[in-house]
Simulated scan of single mutants.
Amino acid sequence: MDKTNPLLRTPGREARRHAPAILGAVVAAIALMVVLIVASRVGGARTPSPDEPTVTTATPADVVVTDQTASPTVDASGSAAASRSLSVQCKSECTLVLTAAGDADVELTVDGPLTHARLLATDPTSTRMQVVGTGTIQVTASAARQVDLTVADESR
């Protein structure tokens, strides 16, 4: 048998024959994934005003977030400070991730019937904490000039 016959179908020749189509499909799939990732990150982006509390809840029916307040203040030295507060009502035990982000000197205070609290990350501009509890949990975030407070329920 002659191995130089171009009509002879070998696995190597078949792979080379179909390589452009397979490569094109892989490149198209990667491009589609990149477009979807970029669209999901850019699509809902909005910058809240400094006077508007940012409270995001992705919670089931047994977790209720209320009492959203924002209070920018200026002290005697002329330094601006901001704080945001809210109450989270958990009818059954819930696991919450609290995120406070601001310009500088961010502090996060949690008060209520907690069974567990764990600091996830902290730096001068943000703090993340995971808490587990039942009942009314009070959350307050403060920072220099501006602060955002986010609550996410991870009880599911």
Rank of each mutant, 00 (worst) to 15 (best):
residue 31 A to N: 04
residue 81 A to L: 07
residue 148 D to R: 12
residue 12 G to I: 09
residue 55 V to C: 13
residue 23 L to G: 09
residue 16 R to Y: 09
residue 39 A to M: 01
residue 48 P to Q: 15
residue 23 L to S: 13
residue 142 S to A: 10
residue 30 I to H: 02
residue 143 A to L: 03
residue 126 S to M: 06
residue 153 D to G: 14
residue 125 T to A: 12
residue 7 L to H: 05
residue 59 T to K: 04
residue 52 E to N: 09
residue 65 V to Y: 02
residue 53 P to S: 14
residue 53 P to A: 11
residue 17 R to M: 14
residue 153 D to A: 14
residue 154 E to L: 14
residue 32 L to H: 02
residue 112 G to R: 01
residue 102 G to V: 06
residue 3 K to C: 10
residue 117 A to P: 00
residue 3 K to D: 10
residue 109 T to Q: 00
residue 1 M to G: 07
residue 105 D to S: 15
residue 155 S to E: 15
residue 151 V to P: 08
residue 110 V to S: 09
residue 16 R to P: 12
residue 111 D to K: 07
residue 26 V to Y: 00
residue 15 A to D: 05
residue 132 V to F: 06
residue 79 S to I: 05
residue 90 C to I: 04
residue 87 S to R: 15
residue 137 I to R: 09
residue 48 P to G: 15
residue 91 K to W: 00
residue 73 T to F: 01
residue 74 V to H: 02
residue 82 A to G: 12
residue 89 Q to G: 04
residue 10 T to Y: 03
residue 54 T to H: 08
residue 104 A to F: 13
residue 156 R to Q: 11
residue 35 V to S: 07
residue 145 R to A: 04
residue 64 V to W: 06
residue 36 L to D: 07
residue 54 T to M: 14
residue 145 R to E: 08
residue 1 M to Y: 02
residue 146 Q to F: 02
residue 69 T to H: 15
residue 90 C to T: 08
residue 124 P to H: 05
residue 84 R to I: 13
residue 41 R to N: 09
residue 113 P to S: 12
residue 99 T to L: 10
residue 145 R to T: 06
residue 25 A to K: 04
residue 126 S to C: 03
residue 105 D to I: 05
residue 23 L to M: 09
residue 18 H to C: 04
residue 97 V to E: 10
residue 95 T to Y: 00
residue 121 A to E: 11
residue 49 S to A: 15
residue 143 A to N: 03
residue 139 V to Y: 00
residue 83 S to E: 10
residue 117 A to K: 06
residue 13 R to E: 10
residue 97 V to Y: 00
residue 103 D to Q: 15
residue 95 T to I: 01
residue 63 V to N: 05
residue 48 P to Y: 08
residue 7 L to N: 08
residue 103 D to Y: 14
residue 4 T to A: 07
residue 46 R to E: 14
residue 97 V to C: 05
residue 9 R to C: 06
residue 100 A to C: 04
residue 85 S to L: 14
residue 116 H to G: 12
residue 11 P to I: 03
residue 79 S to V: 09
residue 47 T to C: 14
residue 16 R to C: 10
residue 118 R to E: 11
residue 52 E to I: 08
residue 65 V to K: 07
residue 24 G to Q: 08
residue 23 L to R: 06
residue 150 T to M: 12
residue 60 P to R: 02
residue 67 D to I: 06
residue 112 G to Y: 07
residue 41 R to F: 02
residue 10 T to H: 01
residue 143 A to P: 08
residue 37 I to H: 05
residue 109 T to N: 04
residue 95 T to C: 00
residue 125 T to E: 13
residue 156 R to I: 11
residue 38 V to S: 07
residue 52 E to Q: 13
residue 82 A to S: 14
residue 101 A to T: 14
residue 11 P to D: 07
residue 128 R to H: 14
residue 114 L to C: 09
residue 151 V to N: 01
residue 120 L to S: 04
residue 69 T to L: 12
residue 13 R to F: 09
residue 32 L to G: 06
residue 23 L to K: 08
residue 136 T to L: 14
residue 58 A to K: 04
residue 15 A to N: 09
residue 63 V to F: 07
residue 145 R to L: 05
residue 50 P to L: 10
residue 79 S to A: 07
residue 84 R to K: 15
residue 134 T to F: 08
residue 128 R to L: 09
residue 18 H to R: 11
residue 43 G to L: 03
residue 85 S to F: 11
